[in-house]
Design a protein around this nucleic acid. Structure first.
Length: 575
DNA sequence: GCCGTTTTCGGCCCGACTGTTTTCAGTCG
């Protein structure tokens, strides 16, 4: 890193994360390590430039950032490095950090392998595995050695932790919940964990069960054809590998304490830690089983009582990420009411057989009316996307005739809107001429080709499109389409700033492979003052339901109905 | 290293499970 520009928040956070990781391996006092890790998370979650804050002496105004971290941030900005980090790198091989992240390893065993075998990175560990020397390490027997060997074999340099989209994980979670509900001893079954918090992807599925007979319920689950393998088992909880390869954790607890269990299993871990620290200061010890305090031991059947014990209002699961929600739960102002699917007045991003949709325009309209919407925007593709039978100007005008005829027939105020999902061309130009664009009720502009050209190129195209007075909405801004491709790493802050300034709306596309914007980007957009569109991008009547995945993202971003354009009746307030 | 219903020092969240062990450390969530 050079010192000619301030380090980004991500770069600062990465430096503190690495420093904390190396200190852990070195055996530093764990609370000091946690201070670095907490500081890193806080910096990652901050929208303002933390380097600029630190230079002004105001970074200590952020929670978890004290004088020491602030001075190290300034040091990083001024010199491009942190001396303390360089020193610890000389004492500890940096390759051990990667080893400590292998499943079943961790800092303790990474250090033991370093001391006993001279292992310093993945390559030397692979050699030690090949020579069968792992069991020479005290505390590593044949089972752990085999597990570590398997982890090394499965390791790929560029592989992030495997995660699956909510479009796969949520239906699978419901299948498991249904199996658990079959058992008469299961009084209540809920999906918890990151899926309940609305995350758009998951590395496992967490389920909680209220029951007085956990052994019977868990035995019933283990016998299900959904279960491939039992990975871990105790009296009240099991972890199984589903027949789809995803890990599923099921925890049981008594109905009278279900609130504690559900709260604990929902997390996040950082949120729970914050709650338990608060509980401790108040003289309680809080866990998934209940609490002990001045009045003895107790628990609660619902989550609200758990938060009430701590003097807090209950935050929606989607915002339990230790981003200040416990502090806000203390104050007088209630939490903002997050948007729900029932708030939607209509949808405006759907396709029909005019382009690549699978159902005719009248049938899509019929489906939207059946869902209770007040309007449906039909937004077929534009001419450049030949693959999708994109509409030429001539076909656009014929589609408008069909829409006009339909609109004449509604007696209840329902309206079909003339929309387009217009391609943003390679140079950021638009796919239709101005005089045609003026005839649309709403113009959604999207990048479909050249996503892999990189974040800078896509950002430039988006920024140019945003500046056009004819563009109302930017569709699926990063172009993500999993598993085929990850989205472009766009500069969301620059895009959001331009969108806020011009009144351009940014889309949260609910198609499971897209889920674009994701919740982090949508949150930054909201903080910049941008309005959002929540859409299904439906190509069939059933796909109108994909809007629910978009709602999950919007809630997680902290959006209220006022933040979501299509919660308003048509016509929307314009720029 | 951070921070305050313990307030400028002395604390810092809680429990389950596994594999290695004869009583517990390490990892995970």
């Amino acid at each position: 890193m050079t010192a000619d520009r301030d380090p980004s928040n991500r770069e600062i956070a990465d430096a503190f994360t690495l420093l904390g990781d190396l200190l852990t391996i070195e055996g530093a006092e764990r609370h000091r390590v946690r201070a670095y890790h907490r500081g890193a998370e806080r910096i990652r979650d901050t929208r303002e430039s933390v380097a600029a804050l630190a230079r002004a002496g105001r970074a200590t105004g952020l929670p978890d950032i004290g004088k020491t971290l602030q001075s190290k941030i300034v040091e990083l900005a001024d010199t491009g490095t942190i001396a303390a980090l360089e020193r610890v790198k000389e004492r500890v091989p940096a390759g051990l950090v990667e080893l400590a992240r292998l499943p079943g390893v961790g800092p303790g065993r990474a250090v033991a392998m370093w001391r006993e075998l001279g292992v310093t990175d993945m390559e030397s560990l692979r050699a030690a595995v090949g020579e069968g020397r792992l069991t020479d390490v005290p505390g590593i027997g044949p089972k752990l050695a085999a597990g570590i060997a398997a982890a090394v074999a499965a390791h790929r340099d560029d592989a992030p932790a495997p995660r699956v989209g909510a479009g796969v994980a949520l239906p699978l979670a419901e299948e498991f919940a249904a199996v658990l509900r079959e058992h008469p001893a299961a009084a209540r079954v809920e999906v918890a964990g990151s899926l309940r918090r609305g995350r758009e992807d998951a590395h496992d599925i967490d389920l909680v069960v209220a029951t007085d007979d956990p052994a019977a319920v868990l035995a019933h689950l283990a016998a299900s054809p959904l279960v491939d393998e039992v990975a871990a088992a105790g009296p009240a909880k099991v972890a199984v590998i589903s027949n789809r390869g995803l890990r599923v954790e099921v925890t049981c607890g008594p109905p009278g304490r279900f609130g504690n269990l559900l709260q604990h299993a929902t997390g996040s871990a950082a949120h729970n830690t914050r709650l338990r620290e608060r509980a401790k200061r108040m003289g309680y010890s809080l866990s998934e089983h209940g609490w002990t305090g001045p009045d003895g031991e107790d628990g609660a059947p619902d989550e609200e009582a758990v938060y009430a014990l701590l003097g807090l209002r209950t935050p929606d699961p989607e915002i339990r990420e230790d981003r200040g929600e416990t502090e806000r739960g203390l104050g007088d102002a209630p939490f903002p009411e997050l948007v729900t699917g029932a708030d939607l007045a209509g949808q405006v991003h759907v396709h029909t057989t005019w382009s690549d949709g699978r159902e005719t325009l009248p049938h899509m309209v019929e489906a939207a009316r059946a869902l209770g919407y007040r309007y449906l925007g039909v937004s077929d593709h534009s001419q450049s996307l030949a693959l999708t039978r994109g509409l030429t100007p001539d076909r656009v005008r014929r589609q408008w005739d069909e829409i006009d005829a339909l609109n004449d027939g509604f007696g209840d105020g329902f309206r079909v809107l003339k929309c387009t999902e217009m391609d943003i061309l390679a140079d950021g130009g638009l796919d239709f001429e101005d005089d045609l664009l003026e005839g649309f009720d709403l113009v959604i502009a999207s990048v479909h080709q050249g996503v892999s050209a990189g974040g800078d190129a896509v950002t430039r195209r988006l920024l140019r499109a945003i500046e056009s007075p004819h563009v109302d909405v930017i569709g699926h801004p990063t172009g993500r389409k999993r598993p085929r491709r990850e989205g472009a790493s766009i500069d969301i802050d620059a895009v959001a700033e331009a969108a806020a300034r011009t009144g351009t709306i940014l889309e949260i596309n609910g198609q499971p492979p897209r889920q674009d914007l994701d919740s982090d980007m949508a949150r930054r957009a909201l903080e910049a003052g941008v309005r959002l569109l929540v859409s299904s991008d439906a190509h069939s009547p059933a796909e109108l339901g994909y809007v629910s995945y978009g709602i999950r993202i919007a809630r997680r971003a902290g959006a209220t109905a006022a933040d979501v354009a299509n919660c308003a009746p048509w016509p929307w307030r314009c720029r």
